[in-house]
Design a protein around this nucleic acid. Structure first.
Length: 924
RNA sequence: GCCGGGAUGGUGGAAUAGGUAGACACGCAAGACUUAAAAUCUUGUGGCCAUAUGGCCGUGCGGGUUCGAUUCCCGCUCCUGGUACCA
């Protein structure tokens, strides 16, 4: 018989798909569209491992399924090709990052093509391509030329803001701006110099230059954004990160905080991801209260979510970094307080983070006056107060806040209860209750008290209701080489945009990829990194954009990847619309996914696109972890003990390459030739075999647990790889890679092949009509596939295919009426073999153009059914009865069973309907 | 600490508007074919008791609701993801 030769089949069809442009997507108003997107990869030097394609396979299955269902599918792929690793490699080797990136992309593309994805490769984008980053720079320019208008609740042009300033100054405009922006009248504005005006406008622009405290990573020589820092270390490379004040570009993402929060409700994303974004944005509704300082005209502003507890304030705390704190220190307290501030400043961010239990602080000697009752309360400096959140000052209510409580206990300060309820140590009356001991608000509920307090504050102009966000503006510059240059030059120390006609501003050549000798970013090494204007030559910005710049809008570019006139033709972004299915890792929840939503909203505001939320439905695939294998060497020898016997010897464990281990059994010959020092290795075996130990770890080169999809494809073929990755378990689950079950999937494909290829050779298909039993087998699979597609439950579909093929094999069925639709059914999962069978069945067009078989319920309906009689849920007997039972029949059955009689008591059903062994409906 | 997700045979995992737990696959065991091995096919496979019919116990632990709970409720344990002096 003709053998299932996956190598030949897969090569043949991949070639044909590519030559015939089978998956080229074009606008087609007659078909509904479906935009299926994967998070595009960063092309690293290590190549693709088996974890990468997991999500791509899932989206490919959905894409192919949608094609069969008559959708016009857009399923593109590209590369997020700017980034740190290529640059680190460049520093070590002197090779231009563009060169290594190009090599890596070539390898990635080859690996991806081997898996047989239905990608439209004509639409490939690369963020490091000048034709692409021209538009990243263009978006930056639009952000620079925009401000956020709170009345319109959208971004508007800076030009319109200038017009308002000329007319009314800045008091009437409700525009988002930096804290502490001075107010001015129209006359004052008109009197300002150009430099002064530009300086002021920077406080409003959606991307702006400002002195900010940043995460500085000395080892990488660059700043990092909050989401790139994990527990005080850089996400890439794991280097320590410190806080530092620097002049940096930022994106005013906080202006969009509320819309980013509200937009989440409409999205079909998993609840945990939405929750992560909500927490990251961290909206708190509260109030700002101004305290006067006794004997001074200084004022202290605090932010609180619990103004209702204002009568319980017994002290104020200021952040050690605050300038106000230093000013308020009295002479008596000077020595201790200043020493404390110094000590607090010296502690690194990391020390402060790892040590949250130590309570420390110092009295300033000054007192503040509570605006509600005129009481004097001491002002303290404490490092539990963060300079970067709210106003950097806290009104402490020890009775109702745990940190204030601990602080007050530690320093012996007064604790005054103002919410009804019993207070035991460490436990505080909660957010609901009645306010007590609180003058004008006593007796009110917490909610009423808050409303009344805010009214009181606003009336007297000593505070106001305020919404505070945890999210900060996003730092937008990196002191690195391999990124998009900012289209900005400097004149008299102020930033100006280059002209649009000069885009793209192409990355210049440099002699080295390191910072300059005087610590400037690598672009400082470029010759002539200047911009020529009519007024003369000015220096260009030397920092580059962060990795997330290019990835925040690539999904729009796919709709029109070669456009030179705009980021994408609006007719095309309108046609393809929002992404219908986005698959990628949840690790991007507070990075890429938030920034992309921000940029999409901005582009929507300026009319560049018509979609505000770019990703309608998202699935987060779980990481495939590596499963490391270990061998156990008896210390000081070259003898290795099998896992089960290692306790009998003094051994040390050693990682062994998982590619020379099969089902935890070590291949001894391959082990000996793995490394020269192992050639003389000896073994102590169990049952004649060497068993390795195993552990689940992240896939990494150094742990020898990386599995390359090419190896799997070489051995089993791409269709097996695709099916097996899906078979491994639910898509969203984290799971270790193992090939233990891959033989089963491969066997299934061979069985499928053999349905069409009888044992006596050749290809044979019967044209006789199928029996009802055979059609039932097929339609069970159709139904299951459709259900699974709706729930994105890919693993169970593979099982249902196996059952279907096993049953057809048993029936000896090779009837066209059954096996032709079967090929279509399986084609999203195993496209190569399906395409081959399709062509053998005599079709000349691709199987992707086939119509999806229509599910017919009638084939599944049984007329008779084995009715289970149960007691306490245990099967007692099976009676062969009609599917639908009437009451007398039920009673006949029920007579046999006391429990069922009890169940029927008082229910008097007219009819009972049972489907597949389960009582699903009572007709009363 | 706070907010999520999870725990089912030797293994990966099925099954939840409550209804025969363990589908499918791996592994293992026995058998067929073979000089032999590989491949392939057949059968068995949650645990305990029993020659068997069969019985008892079983979805992390302890309770509850129900005729009936892997599924719902209450209280724990452990693993895992996020976040962390956010006022």
């Amino acid at each position: 018989m003709a053998e299932y030769n996956f190598r030949e089949i897969e090569q043949k069809w991949q070639g044909k798909w590519s030559d015939q442009g089978t998956y080229t997507a074009e606008i087609d108003p007659l078909r509904p569209k479906f935009y299926s997107l994967d998070m595009f990869p960063y092309p690293s030097g290590a190549g693709l491992h088996v974890g990468h394609p997991l999500g791509y396979i899932a989206s490919d299955i959905v894409s192919r399924f949608k094609l069969l269902k008559g959708f016009n599918v857009l399923h593109p792929m590209g590369y997020d090709s700017f980034g740190l690793p290529a640059e680190q490699y460049a520093i070590q080797t002197g090779q231009h990052p563009a060169v290594t990136t190009e090599q890596n992309i070539t390898r990635y593309t080859e690996q991806l093509k081997n898996i047989g994805f239905a990608f439209d490769w004509n639409r490939e984008v690369r963020t490091s391509d000048p034709a692409y980053y021209k538009w990243t720079q263009w978006i930056f320019m639009q952000l620079f030329n925009s401000y956020y208008d709170q009345d319109a609740d959208k971004a508007l042009s800076i030009a319109s803001l200038v017009a308002r300033f000329e007319k009314d100054g800045n008091s009437s405009a409700k525009a988002v701006c930096d804290e502490g922006t001075p107010s001015f009248t129209a006359e004052e504005w008109r009197g300002y110099t150009e430099t002064q005006k530009q300086q002021l406008l920077l406080h409003y622009r959606l991307t702006f230059l400002a002195e900010t405290t940043v995460n500085w990573c000395p080892a990488l020589g660059t700043v990092l954004s909050n989401d790139e820092v994990k527990e005080g270390f850089s996400e890439r490379g794991g280097h320590p990160v410190e806080r530092k004040k620097m002049m940096q570009w930022s994106m005013r993402i906080t202006a969009y905080a509320d819309r980013l929060l509200k937009g989440l409700d409409q999205l079909d994303w998993s609840e945990p991801i939405k929750e992560m974004q909500r927490n990251w944005i961290g909206k708190s509704i509260g109030a700002e209260v101004v305290f006067d300082v006794k004997g001074s005209n200084q004022k202290i502003q605090v932010f609180t979510t619990r103004v209702d507890t204002i009568y319980g304030v017994t002290f104020l705390s200021l952040a050690p970094e605050s300038d106000l704190a230093a000013e308020l220190i009295t002479d008596e307290q000077r020595q201790t307080a200043e020493a404390y501030i110094q000590q607090a400043k010296n502690r690194s961010e990391r020390e402060r983070m790892s040590d949250v239990k130590t309570i420390s602080g110092s009295f300033t000697g000054s007192y503040a006056i509570n605006p509600f009752n005129g009481e004097e309360v001491p002002i303290w400096v404490a490092d539990y107060v963060l300079a970067g959140y709210g106003t950097g000052a806290v009104m402490a209510v020890p009775a109702h806040d745990e940190r204030d409580y601990n602080f007050a206990k530690h320093f012996g300060l007064e604790i005054r209860q103002v919410i009804e309820g019993s207070m035991e140590n460490g436990s505080f009356p909660g957010k609901i209750g009645t306010v007590i001991n609180s003058g004008m608000i006593s007796g009110l509920s917490v909610k009423e008290a808050i409303t009344k307090c805010i009214a009181f504050l606003e009336e007297r102009k000593i505070g106001r209701g305020k919404v505070q966000y945890r999210m900060r503006d996003a730092i937008f510059t990196r002191q690195r080489y391999w990124g998009e240059p900012l289209p900005v030059y400097f004149k008299e120390g102020l930033p100006y945009l280059i002209e649009e006609k000069d885009l793209p501003l192409v990355l210049p050549e440099v002699d080295k990829y390191l910072p300059t000798e005087d610590g400037d970013a690598p672009l400082g090494r470029a010759k002539n990194w200047n911009y020529q204007t009519a007024e003369g030559e000015f220096p260009l910005e030397r920092s580059t954009m962060p990795g997330w710049a290019g990835s925040s809008w690539y999904f729009f570019r796919y709709t029109d990847p070669k456009n030179e006139k705009s980021l994408a033709d609006k007719a095309k972004t309108d046609y393809w619309g929002a992404v219908d299915l986005y698959i990628g890792g949840s690790e991007h929840a507070t990075g890429h996914l938030l920034y992309s939503r921000f940029w999409a909203k901005f582009l929507y505001d300026i009319g560049a696109v018509s979609i505000e939320e770019p990703f309608q439905k998202m699935i987060n695939q779980g990481m495939i972890q590596g499963r490391s294998n270990f061998v156990y060497r008896i210390k000081g020898t070259n003898t290795f003990v099998s896992h089960g016997l290692k306790e009998q010897h003094d051994t040390s464990a050693m990682h062994v390459d998982v590619n020379i281990v099969n089902n935890d059994q070590l291949n001894l010959d391959k082990f000996k030739s793995w490394r020269p020092d192992l050639a003389t290795a000896e073994f102590i075996l169990e049952d004649g075999k060497y068993y390795c130990g195993a552990e689940v770890e992240k896939m990494s080169k150094s742990k020898y647990n990386v599995v390359n999809p090419d190896d799997i494809i070489e051995r089993y073929g791409a269709d097996t790889l695709r099916l097996y990755e899906m078979f491994l378990g639910p898509l969203e689950q984290f799971k270790p890679w193992n090939t233990n079950g891959i033989d089963g999937v491969y066997k299934f494909l061979r069985k499928l092949w053999n349905l069409y290829h009888p044992a006596n050779g050749g290809f044979a298909i019967s044209e006789t009509p199928a029996s009802k039993e055979e059609l039932k087998v097929l339609h069970k699979a159709i139904k299951k596939l459709e259900e699974d597609m709706a729930n994105y439950s890919f693993n169970t579909s593979v099982s249902s295919f196996m059952i279907c093929v096993n049953e057809l094999t048993t029936l000896g069925c090779n009837k066209r009426e059954v096996v032709e639709p079967l090929a279509i059914l399986i084609s999203p999962y195993a496209p190569h073999i399906a395409e081959e069978l399709w062509s053998l069945l005599g079709h000349t067009t691709s199987i992707t153009r086939a119509a999806f078989p229509e599910f017919r319920e009638e084939y599944l309906v049984e007329s008779n059914f084995e009715y289970p009689v149960m007691i306490n849920g245990k099967l007692r007997a099976k009676l062969d009865l009609p599917l639908t039972l009437t009451v007398p029949e039920i009673e006949k059955v029920a007579l046999a069973d006391v429990q069922i009689q009890k169940w029927l008591e008082g229910k008097s059903p007219k009819k009972i309907i049972i489907v597949l062994g389960k009582i699903v409906n009572l007709v009363v």
